[in-house]
Simulated scan of single mutants.
Amino acid sequence: MDKLFGQMLQEASRLGRNWPQHNEALRSKEAGEQLGAIAYAFAFPEAVDISGLIEAVEIAKQPFVQYWGLRAIQRAMDVGVAYSVKDAGRLRILASAFQAETDRYLIASSISRALEKKIL
């Protein structure tokens, strides 16, 4: 699966910053479409709305998609993409939905804590 995501990242890089349908794909019920949009968000974090990424993780059914969605959120935060207090709250709720000590719980909790520190 990691190899597949790597291929999606390469394809996203070829698209460049011009994929206006990425927000629709983030909200897709199809895991493959979601993962493709998440790869795009990972490649171009400043081109994606944090709220849309959070929504993608919230609706994703596949742990792999959730994991990479969280990693894309983390990357967006690292490059300074804007977020709201509401986004921080949604991430806190999202972290609590994952089983403790899973990679998804740890990443979501880490992002949530970092955002709350910045807000305070």
Rank of each mutant, 00 (worst) to 15 (best):
A114G: 04
R17I: 06
Q62D: 14
D103A: 15
Q34L: 12
A114N: 07
P45C: 04
K118H: 07
E116W: 05
A95I: 09
I93C: 02
A60N: 03
H22C: 02
A72Y: 08
L120E: 15
E24A: 15
Q99M: 14
I119M: 06
K3I: 14
L35D: 09
I50G: 00
E58G: 06
K86C: 04
A41L: 01
D78L: 10
L4E: 15
L91Y: 01
G89D: 10
I59D: 03
L94W: 05
R104Q: 11
L120R: 15
L53N: 01
R71T: 13
S84E: 06
S96G: 07
Y40P: 01
S84L: 05
W68G: 07
R17S: 08
L91W: 03
Y105M: 00
L115I: 04
Y67V: 08
R104D: 00
L9A: 09
K3A: 13
A100F: 11
D103L: 12
D2G: 15
G89S: 10
R14A: 14
A12R: 01
V81W: 01
E30P: 04
F5Y: 12
A95Q: 04
E116A: 05
Q99L: 14
V79T: 13
G36V: 08
E33W: 13
A56I: 02
K3F: 11
P20T: 02
G36Q: 15
G6M: 10
L70E: 10
V81Q: 09
R75V: 06
E55P: 00
G80R: 05
G32Y: 13
A82M: 11
K3N: 13
L106S: 00
E24I: 15
A114D: 10
M77P: 00
I50Q: 00
N23E: 12
S13Q: 12
E58P: 10
I50P: 00
L91Q: 02
I73P: 02
W19V: 07
E24W: 08
Q66C: 11
E33P: 03
L94R: 00
Q66W: 05
E46K: 09
L35P: 08
E30N: 11
M8P: 03
P20W: 00
